[in-house]
């Protein structure tokens, strides 16, 4: 065995742990602190007293979250509005999923010619780039403010979102399994429904459910903007018009409850399908 003789490491006289990235980080943090201090000192509070404002904030939060109540609207009205929001989310997801499934066939590279797949993918990327709420407003110009503009706008964006998710799931099916059926003389649609669909159902289901959650959240936001008479509209009115924070708190709790229920369902669904997998 040969032993390698090591030369003693010579340390520089003053060893600094302050490397270049750390120096930059400190400079940035220091700068931000200075800016914050400057902004706080020169803030035009216009008669606002921080101490009383803080206690009012605490008071408002207290009203909202510790004393929720129905305010001028009744329970039945709010619950019906909540159901409207859920239905809006559900309807637009189902419509979106239906259209998206067939469009996704054309967007999947292992089923459709490249030019078609690329064209559809580009178009869908364009639609997705514009937020849902803007599509609703664009459609409300055409159809007038209201529930129908909300439905069409939400569906439109859902389609674009789901086409991407679905087509990528379809592309994940191995080409050889498709080839095996093609080699036995099976037509296109039977292959899609008998071979591809069974392989990707868990993925489709989970994407669709995520979109349902998104659509529910969007429906609340869109309801306020498009006047679809759903829970979003009442939230908007209670907070911005009547300043009834009891009701704002109640609505927030209702939305939270729905979100929790959706999450539980989604976990159950995935669990069910993963067990089969």
């Amino acid at each position: 065995m040969k032993t390698v003789k090591q030369a003693p490491i010579s340390l520089p006289p003053k060893l600094s742990l302050l490397t270049r990235p750390r120096r930059i980080l400190r400079t940035v943090l220091g700068g931000l602190t200075l800016i914050t201090l400057y902004a706080l000192l020169t803030l035009n509070t216009a008669g606002l007293k921080i101490s009383s404002a803080m206690s009012s904030l605490g008071n408002n939060l207290n009203i909202m979250f510790l004393h929720p109540g129905v305010g001028q609207d009744t329970w039945s009205l709010l619950l019906r509005a909540l159901v409207t929001s859920i239905s809006l989310g559900l309807l637009t997801t189902i419509l979106g999923a239906l259209f998206a499934f067939f469009i996704a066939m054309g967007a999947a590279r292992n089923l459709a010619p490249a030019w078609l797949a690329n064209t559809i993918k580009a178009a869908m990327a364009f639609i997705r780039a514009i937020p849902t709420i803007l599509w609703v407003l664009i459609y409300s110009v055409v159809m007038g403010l209201g529930a129908s503009a909300a439905v069409v706008g939400l569906t439109f964006h859902s389609i674009a979102y789901l086409v991407k998710a679905y087509s990528e799931s379809i592309e994940a099916t191995p080409a050889e399994t498709i080839e095996a059926l093609k080699a036995s003389g099976v037509r296109f649609w039977p292959i899609v429904f008998q071979a591809i669909l069974p392989s990707i159902i868990p993925a489709l289901l989970s994407w669709t459910f995520i979109r349902f959650e998104i659509n529910f959240a969007n429906a609340v936001a869109v309801g306020a903007a498009a006047g679809a008479n759903d829970i979003g509209y009442y939230l908007f009115m209670a907070s911005g018009f009547y300043f009834n924070f009891h009701e704002v708190g109640l609505i927030v709790y209702l939305l939270l409850a729905v979100a929790v229920v959706l999450e539980i369902i989604s976990i159950q669904l995935r669990g069910h399908y993963l067990k089969q997998n």
Binding site: T177, L181, S184, G185, V186, R187, W189, P190, I191, V192, F193, Q194, A195, P198, S199, I201, Q276, N277
Partner: peptide, 24 residues
Amino acid sequence: IGPLTALENVLHGRLGAKSTFAGM
């Protein structure tokens, strides 16, 4: 097709003899 049963996979051998609709 991995997620399908052995029986379903064997039945796929008949798909080529079926109409588009029955096959779907």
